[in-house]
């Protein structure tokens, strides 16, 4: 089993590789979500072209596959930026100022939740609870949890992401 935790660094979509990933779980009961996670892990998103292939392998309708992909918040329909920053906006983080953090991201950096920066360096997403509620506000940067996040931390994360590697 792969790590199944998307980090934002991924290969370009490849139909043949995608088919192999899908086939590998062909006989697993309830394989839909594991397949979608594997695809997203490999490519950073689930390409539209995978829908009929999954439908065929799992013997379900394309509508069902489409329904699952669009139902869950995790699955992306296009590649994410080089880095993915998930900012928690649930109650524990609200109690220590996550609304200010998000306003800062939107106003100072001109980034929108759910969107990727124009230079492709970072995708900022909202998330509801990372389980770090005693050390709020919390964010998840490329799968790494960061606690007691300040506005300065956010500036640093976004500026570091924008720098050419």
């Amino acid at each position: 089993m792969t790590a199944q935790v998307s980090s934002g660094t991924a290969a370009r979509w490849n139909d043949a590789v995608a088919k192999d990933i899908i086939d590998a779980r062909r006989s697993e009961p309830g394989a839909m979500l594991p397949i979608l996670h594997d695809l997203q892990e490999a490519f950073g998103y689930v390409d539209q072209s995978a829908v009929p292939v999954i439908a065929d392998v799992l013997n379900v309708s394309r509508a069902e596959v489409h329904g699952v992909i669009t139902y869950y918040h995790d699955f992306r329909h296009a590649p994410a930026g080089k880095h993915v920053l998930k900012i928690c906006r649930a109650e524990a983080c609200q109690s220590v100022g996550c609304r200010d953090l998000i306003a800062h991201v939107e106003q100072k950096h001109g980034l929108e939740l759910g969107k990727t920066s124009p230079d492709g360096s970072i995708t900022v997403e909202e998330v509801f609870c990372l389980g770090n509620c005693a050390l709020s506000p919390a964010v998840l940067l490329d799968g790494e949890l960061i606690g007691r996040v300040t506005i300065d931390d956010i500036d640093q994360i976004i500026e570091t992401a924008a720098r050419p590697a």
Partner: peptide, 9 residues
């Protein structure tokens, strides 16, 4: 068997 959710509360 260990399964991963997909971000639906």
């Amino acid at each position: 068997i260990v399964r991963l959710g997909a971000g639906a509360y």
